[in-house]
Computed example of a mutant assay.
Amino acid sequence: MTDTTPTPEPGPRQSWETHAAASGDTDVVAISPVREEGMLTDERPDTSVFGPDVVARARELIARYPQSRSALLPMLHLVQSVQGYVSQAGVTFCAEQLDLSEAEVSAVVTFYTMYKRKPCGEHLVSVCTNTLCAALGGDAIYRRLAEHLGEDGRPVGHEEVAGAPGEPGSIMLEHAECLAACDLAPVLQVNYEYYDKQTPDSAVELVDALRRGEKPAPTRGAPLTDFKAAELQLAGFFPEDDATYRAAVDGPSQAVETLRGAQLAADRGWTAPAMADDVPLPALDSKKEGR
């Protein structure tokens, strides 16, 4: 093994290396994503879980786009609707359906946090811990849920499951970046449906109800379903019967707080200034060599 380099120290001196080399006893495989099933073998993963009905839906997705590779994002949601996560078999399935390499599919799967590489629970609970929600209690909500869902004094970690993955009442807990509901902070989502103005106590009551098999109504939006059913909708598949479809997806998405600014403007007669058609765009400095 080559000599290790020292860990770079903070300070004014620049370093050619921005990492510390692994020591001789570091198990590189153990700390890398290649532990995912099938990633260290040349054997093709078993994709039989994706039966003829799933293949038909995959072909339907592909037909919606001028280029087949554009169907990758909804197809990954379709995979999650079957397995509750994107396994290596799911990666292979998408690659074969879209004539992509597995590396191309894996690059997308690992980029987006909405695609899970570990089996999810029946429900995915996402707690917003971005700035405003965190300041108003999001961090406290996450800590409380992590402790409440943990066992033997160990809190549940980010993207870990309380209970057996996929089984009734099981819950995957995750930190979430901005959920676009700052006006109703702190918020959390269950399978991407909103529960606004939460507290640690109300969040505990919510997850306890989920674990009992109940489906409390979201603050706004569509009725609550489980993670796999939500993934099928995200893939773009809905009930054909219109009444069933409306019952599954319809629901008020706005809140009084969300519309308050627009209501104030309407009440006071405020309007945005009109844009003149003949206003030239500001000139840009030409690029100079070396800049």
Rank of each mutant, 00 (worst) to 15 (best):
P165Y: 00
E147H: 10
A180S: 14
T26S: 11
Q189V: 00
L78Q: 08
E257Y: 08
R13M: 09
V54E: 03
A217E: 12
L149D: 01
E159T: 06
G38F: 03
L206T: 01
G138Y: 01
C178H: 11
D208Q: 14
L284M: 13
K197M: 07
G221D: 00
V105E: 04
M1T: 09
V34S: 07
Y112W: 14
V79A: 04
Q233R: 14
T5S: 11
K287N: 13
Q80K: 02
S70L: 14
P273D: 07
G269R: 11
T199M: 01
R69P: 02
S70F: 15
R154E: 12
T18I: 11
A134P: 09
V49C: 08
L173V: 00
D27P: 03
L73N: 10
V156T: 13
L284E: 13
R35L: 10
V54R: 03
P6D: 13
D242L: 12
A247P: 06
D241G: 12
P119F: 01
R143L: 12
E257D: 11
M39R: 14
V29C: 02
M172P: 00
A247M: 06
Y112N: 07
S101R: 06
L264D: 15
V187P: 01
F237D: 07
T26P: 01
Q263Y: 15
P218R: 05
F237C: 11
A20I: 06
D53T: 15
Q80M: 11
P52F: 05
R69N: 04
N130S: 09
A107M: 14
M75N: 06
M114R: 07
S126Y: 04
P282Q: 14
F111L: 10
P216L: 03
G261D: 12
T131Y: 15
G163L: 03
R69K: 07
Y112G: 00
Y85A: 00
V82G: 00
E43P: 02
G84H: 05
R64K: 14
A146V: 02
A229W: 04
L173F: 01
V187G: 00
Y112F: 15
L149T: 02
C94G: 01
H158A: 05
R246E: 15
L179V: 12
V91K: 00
S101A: 11
T92A: 13
D27C: 01
T199V: 03
E205R: 15
A229V: 13
F237W: 09
S48R: 13
V125S: 03
Q254A: 12
E43A: 15
M114P: 00
G290D: 09
L224M: 05
A180L: 13
A95Q: 05
P252K: 09
L234C: 06
D196K: 04
G290A: 08
K118D: 07
K228H: 11
S81W: 12
T244K: 14
V55F: 05
P216S: 05
D208T: 08
L179K: 05
V279E: 15
Y195W: 04
D242K: 14
A265L: 10
G236Y: 10
A63S: 12
Y115I: 08
Q189C: 06
F237R: 08
Q80D: 02
T225V: 15
T219A: 04
Q14S: 14
R154H: 11
S81P: 12
T2V: 10
E43L: 09
P155T: 00
R211I: 03
S48Y: 05
E159W: 00
E174W: 03
R13A: 13
Y142Q: 08
S87M: 01
P216R: 05
Q263H: 10
